[in-house]
Design a protein around this nucleic acid. Structure first.
Lengths: 334, 334
DNA sequence: TTGAAAGCGCTAACAA
DNA sequence: TTGTTAGCGCTTTCAA
C-alpha cells in the first residue's frame, strides 16, 4: 500500500495536460502561472485538463528552474519549549501567507547541533533561514557563501551586519519591576535564565536599571537554565539560603513553572509570601496556579517582521525592535 | 545584505568542481555519491575541489532526477500543544537518522485546514506524510492519487487499509484505573477529552472496562477539549455539581493542568481531596504541582515505528500498537 | 496567441 | 576507470 517508490510514477506532468488539452506544454505553463495571455478557449481546455488530471507543477523542477524552493528554514534551541513552539507557529502562519512553508529544526541548545542544522537547511536550498541562536555570535560560515539570507529572531541584541528582530527586553523588564514596585514591594529579586558565554541579558540589565531609578537596592539573584527545571533549582537555592525576597521578577514563563513549584512545595504562598512577575506571555502563564502576571512578547508581530525581513529585497541590515506589554494575572497580588 | 535573489548565483555547481579537479562532471557525482569506483588520485582532487568550493549537490536537481525530495511532512492538530510538539520532535530525530528532514504543519484541529495542509505538503512532493488527524476518517483524496504514502500517527484506532501507529489506550487506561484502585479509592471518575464526531475513545472504554472488572460503579464523567482550558472547565463543572469524586482519571496532561488549577482554586487539595492519574507522560507532568502520576506514551518508539512504516517498501497495511507505562508522581497519593 | 527549444544541475546508463 | 549524454519537468525567450 502506498509504496514510497510509486510517488513519482503516478503524477501527471505538464505534457500530459498539454496533450489532453490539445495545446503545447508552454501554454499550460502560461495558464497555470498566469504569466502570459492565452486564448479564452485554450485556457478553458487547459483548466479542464488540469482539474481532470489533478495536475500540479513539480516543485523540484520549478525550484531548479527558478532558483527558489519557496521554503524557509527555522532553527530554535528547543522546539518543545512552548515559547519557541508558539513562535515557530506564528512564523509558520506568517510564511504561509506568502506561499512559503517552513522547515523547523531544533539545535538542542548546542552550538554544534545548531551549526549542523544550518548546514542541513542550506543543503536543502531553503530560500532563507530564521535563526534563534543559542549563542550571541553564531557561526554562519558558508551560509553567506551559499548566499542564503538569515534573520536572527528573538536575539538578545542586534547582531551587526545582519537583519534581526527581537523584543525590547530592557523595557519589558522595566514594566515588570515597576509593576512590582507599584504594589509596594521594596525588595525585588530576580530569577534569571541564561546560557553559557553570553553577555548580560537585557532583562537583568533592565531589572537593575529600574531598581536604580526607583532607588531600591537590588534583591537577590538566582540563576538557572531557561527551563522549568532551571527555575525550580534556582528557587530552591533561594529558599535554602533563607533569603527569599518579597517579590521576584522571573525571566521566562518556563522558569516560572519551576519557581512556582519550588515555592508551593516549600509551603510558601504566591502572591502572599512571594509575588511574581514573569516574562513571555505564553499559554503557560494563563494555566499556572496562580495565573502568572507576565510581560508578553508579541510573537505574531515578531514573526511577521521576521518574514518581511527575510523576503524583502536586498537591503542594509535592520534590527527590528518590538515592544512587550504587561498581562496581569494573580501572581503579583493584583 | 543577504538578498534572496542571490541564493542561486553564488553556489558552486558540479561542473565547477569538475573543472577545478580536472575531471568530468560524472566523476564528481561518483565521488560525492560513492556510487562508483574512482581512481584514488582523481578522488582526492575531487574532494579537494569540493571542500574548496563548498560544493553541495543541488537538492532540487537531485530530487527532480531521483523522484525523491528526501523530505517528509507531518500534520498535527496543534504544534504548540506540548504533546504534539514532543511527538514532532521525536519524529524529527527519527527521520534525521535516515537523512530526511520533516516539514511540520498544524491543522488547528480543523478538518478543512488539515486537508489544506495535506494538499500543501503533497504539492511540495514530500516523500511521505505523518498524519495526526483531527478526525477518525480523514479525507485522503488525491494523496493516494499522488501516490504519497501516509502513516496515521497517534490514531485512536487502526484505520483500515492504511499504516498506523498508536498507543494501546485501553491498556493505558487500565493502568491508570488499577493504580487508583490499589490506593483504595472506590470512586473513580474521568475527565475525558474529545473532538467532535469521534467514536468512543479507548481511554474512556478502558476506564469503563477496568471499573467493571473491579466491580466498581463508574464515577462521574466530565468532558472537555484536550486542552488546559478544557480540563479547567470540565473540572469546574464537576465541582459546581458537588459531585467531585475521590479520584480521577484525566485523559491528558494538558487537561490535567486545567483540572489541577480548578481544583486548587476551589480550595481542594491534590491528592488529599482528589487523587489524579493523568495520561501522556509529558514534561508537564513533572513540573506540575503536585507532580502528576501519569500514563506515559513512548513517543520516541512511536516516532521510530512511524518513520519505519513510512520509509519501508510497499507492504500491506500494518497497525503498530505500542505500550504505555505508568510514571508515578504525587498526584495519586503515592 | 501559440509553439519550439534552451537550459536549470543532477544521476546513471552506456561507451570508450 | 573515466567521459559522454539523455532526460527528469519546468519557465521563458524568441520566432512564427
Amino acid at each position: 500500500m502506498s509504496p514510497l517508490s510509486s510517488s513519482a510514477a503516478s503524477r501527471a506532468t505538464r505534457s500530459d495536460v498539454a496533450k489532453l488539452a490539445g495545446v503545447s506544454p508552454a501554454v499550460v505553463s502560461y495558464v497555470v502561472n498566469g504569466t502570459k495571455r492565452v486564448g479564452a478557449e485554450a485556457e478553458e481546455r487547459v483548466r479542464d485538463a488540469v482539474a481532470k488530471l489533478g495536475y500540479r507543477a513539480n516543485p523540484s523542477a520549478r525550484a531548479l528552474r527558478l532558483g527558489s524552493t519557496e521554503m524557509l528554514g527555522m532553527v530554535t534551541p528547543t522546539t518543545t519549549n512552548p515559547y519557541f513552539a508558539q513562535l515557530a507557529h506564528e512564523v509558520e502562519v506568517a510564511a504561509a501567507k506568502r506561499g512559503f512553508m517552513v522547515i523547523n529544526s531544533s539545535s538542542d541548545s548546542s552550538v554544534v547541533t545548531e551549526r549542523n542544522q544550518l548546514e542541513q537547511l542550506a543543503g536543502r536550498l531553503v530560500d532563507g533561514i530564521f535563526l534563534c541562536s543559542t549563542v550571541f555570535e553564531p557561526d554562519l560560515r558558508n551560509l553567506d557563501i551559499a548566499g542564503i539570507p538569515i534573520v536572527m529572531l528573538n536575539n538578545r541584541a542586534g547582531i551587526p551586519s545582519r537583519d534581526s528582530v527581537g523584543v525590547d527586553l530592557l523595557h519589558g523588564a522595566h514594566l515588570a519591576v515597576e509593576h512590582l514596585a507599584e504594589h509596594g514591594y521594596d525588595e525585588i529579586g530576580i530569577v534569571m535564565g541564561g546560557t553559557a558565554g553570553d553577555a548580560e541579558d537585557g532583562r537583568e540589565a533592565g531589572w537593575r536599571e529600574s531598581l536604580e531609578r526607583l532607588s531600591l537596592a537590588p534583591g537577590p539573584i538566582a540563576r538557572g537554565l531557561f527551563t522549568p527545571g532551571g527555575g525550580y533549582q534556582a528557587m530552591q537555592r533561594l529558599i535554602r539560603s533563607g533569603a527569599v525576597p518579597r517579590s521576584l521578577f522571573v525571566s521566562s514563563d518556563q522558569m516560572s513553572r519551576g519557581v512556582l513549584k519550588a515555592t508551593l512545595e516549600a509551603g510558601l504562598k504566591v502572591p502572599e509570601d512571594v509575588a511574581i512577575v514573569s516574562f513571555d506571555g505564553s499559554i503557560d502563564a494563563a494555566y499556572s496556579w496562580p495565573t502568572l502576571t507576565t510581560v508578553a512578547q508579541p510573537l505574531a508581530e515578531m514573526a511577521e517582521a521576521a518574514v518581511d525581513a527575510l523576503l524583502s529585497p536586498p537591503h542594509d541590515p535592520v534590527h527590528r525592535v518590538v515592544e512587550a506589554h504587561l498581562v496581569v494575572g494573580r501572581s503579583c497580588g493584583c
